[in-house]
Design a binder for these strands. Structure first.
Lengths: 161, 161
DNA sequence: CGGACAGGTGGACAACCTGACCACCTGCCT
DNA sequence: AGGCAGGTGGTCAGGTTGTCCACCTGTCCG
């Protein structure tokens, strides 16, 4: 089931930590710092990418720096038969950054951003324009306690089971 | 208030779209594709970074590929006076990928990952080990309808107001 | 035991890219 | 008119990349 997943060894972890800290580092420089051959770093990177562990190197964008200072989480209760259309609808709204189908009453769960609380209202209005959306409940993010991170997970050594 | 934010022009947008599509592209190659001088690309990138729009170039890691196939969202109701200690506690749990203070009953909102539903229970047990956590409610992510994205926002042209 | 195999090493090469300059042009604000 | 930010092409030396290669090591297996 949760079968084929890549298991990291120590070098992988050091590699990922290094690149997380200094992403624009070249392969050669990285190999020097890790004290391994350049080819090794290259091979590891290729393998991690092939395994899907590394999904990209994209520039990370801060919505906040673009003026979208408000983040909100919205639960949507929807007409299940219209799910397809609704997700397509959501996809078309740029302020919807993320969306999951979840267990519980809220059938869908979305992350929104907006320029202000007033703007948030506008965004939600666009969002609920689809009549397949029966009910929504919104929660506003006040402050980030832990920003999205994966390094602790990467560095985490699962105890032998 | 939501004052100083960087406004993107057309070139910025094209630049970001290009690098989002092919992140490992060099500055020179990018300048060719965008048909501008190399220095321009360099300057834009520097400015976007200085403005905080680009926050990083880190390798993006897929928890899923590492075997953490279960994602859950947890709302925590906490003893407010212990907030500090609690967030410190959460920070120490690798499976907590993200955490916000939010409006509403759930005082904190967290994103967790786990290797399986059984493992999720273990993670939650660790999480609620802190007695300052009064109540939790968990919702499991069943499927990703829209994966975390910022490009639509970047490409979005706000209508003149 | 001997082989096959994956993965590491160090070295070599030409082709290419980077960072740091420069002089110069343009549009815009004052 | 002057100042200034930002764009353009160009130069340069030095570093980096992709791609080979031969070779070594540990492990799994018939």
């Amino acid at each position: 089931m949760t079968s084929s997943h890549h298991t990291l060894d120590d070098l992988d972890r050091r590699l990922l930590a290094l690149f997380a800290a200094r992403p624009r580092l070249g392969v050669l420089e990285a190999s020097r710092q890790l004290k391994v051959a350049r080819g090794t770093v290259q091979a590891r990177l290729d393998r991690l990418t092939a395994a899907g562990v590394i999904t990209g190197w994209g520039p990370e964008i801060s919505p906040e720096a673009l003026g979208y200072g408000v983040t909100a989480f919205v639960s949507l209760e929807i007409d299940q038969s219209l799910r397809q259309r609704i997700t397509a609808h959501l996809e078309r709204i740029p302020q919807v950054l993320e969306c999951w189908t979840v267990t519980g009453n809220g059938d869908l769960w979305c992350r929104l951003v907006a320029r202000s609380n007033a703007d948030l209202q506008d965004v939600i209005n666009v969002l609920v324009a689809d009549p397949g959306i029966l009910r929504t409940s919104t929660v506003i993010g006040l402050s980030t306690e832990i920003a999205m991170r994966t390094q602790p997970l990467v560095q985490h050594r699962e105890p032998r089971r």
